[in-house]
């Protein structure tokens, strides 16, 4: 069995850190990390590997710095890793991202199961997984929170819906996105890391793609555009109280009483 896990590097914090001396934006390991939801996707794949010896590969599209998260995935227990990186892939929205990843997955070759995290912490759309599935013309289930049975030709999973849990059996090849908490992700192992000392992560660039039409990738392949940016609408009808903490507490309890909430 072959499993491919899609992972992404995301900013570690929402604050911009700038080196006070050089004025450079700090973009080292401290500022970027693996999308936390992807750790659950990797762990799910590794549990399946433990069960049936599946081969687990990770793939990520992003700048060269994303190699860090691919390395982390190898240290956790994955067998292979691929980065898709090219200026031509830059500026992609979900449509272009998922198309590029789907084409990359085809280049790696026939996966039985593709696993994605439920969403990313920087984009939060939860759209890339389902769109990859559509591009590959395979079925998918989002929000899987339990693996019930791993069969030879299919997998039985539980899906977290808004007010119900649904159990589905889905044939390979297929894609699932997994919820936080499906399993507890393991830590990367330094010992295992050493095995990959001479391993070279495969790089896929635009020139390696089968579809050489630039209009399908990156900014050009992205139907959505940001038209304008604006601060959220503020409330101007307000009172600001500045006083000692004790007086503030007193004032607030009076106000709450006045409002009859207590």
């Amino acid at each position: 069995m072959k499993i491919i896990v899609c992972i992404k590097q995301v900013p570690a914090s929402t604050e911009v850190e700038i080196d006070p001396i050089t004025g450079n934006l700090i973009r080292d390991g401290r500022n970027a990390k693996m999308n936390p939801y992807d750790l659950y996707a990797i762990e799910t794949a590794l549990r399946i590997k433990e069960f049936n010896g599946a081969h687990v590969a990770t793939i990520s599209m992003g700048p060269p710095s994303a190699l860090a998260v691919l390395n982390e995935s190898l240290w956790m227990g994955c067998d292979d890793a691929t980065i898709m990186t090219d200026r031509k892939f830059g500026g992609a929205d979900v449509v272009a991202t998922s198309y590029t990843l789907a084409e990359g997955i085809k280049l790696i070759g026939s996966a039985d199961l593709i696993i994605c995290g439920k969403q990313t912490t920087d984009g939060d759309t939860a759209q890339v997984g389902p769109e990859i599935a559509e591009n590959l013309k395979i079925p998918h289930l989002s929000y899987v929170d339990k693996i019930i049975e791993i069969k030879e030709k299919s997998i039985v999973v539980q899906v977290d819906m808004d007010s119900t849990e649904e159990v589905w059996e889905i044939d390979y090849p297929c894609l699932i996105t997994v919820n936080k908490g499906i399993f507890t992700p393991r830590l990367p192992s330094y010992k295992r890391g050493k095995l990959f000392k001479d391993y070279e992560i495969r790089q896929i660039h635009f020139s390696d793609m089968k579809d050489q039409n630039e209009a399908h990738y990156g900014l050009k392949g992205s139907p959505t555009q940001v038209e304008r940016m604006f601060p959220p609408i503020k409330n101007t009808d307000k009172e600001i109280w500045e006083d000692t903490d004790k007086n503030l507490a007193l004032k607030l309890s009076k106000k709450l009483k006045e409002m009859k909430v207590v």
Binding site: V94, V95, S98, D160, P223
Partner: peptide, 20 residues
């Protein structure tokens, strides 16, 4: 859960934008 699983597939099929 349904909308967020279904709409992206439509976007990929029709190659059109979808804002979440």
């Amino acid at each position: 859960s349904i909308g967020r699983s279904f709409a992206p597939r439509v976007a990929a099929r029709l190659k059109t934008g979808l804002t979440a």
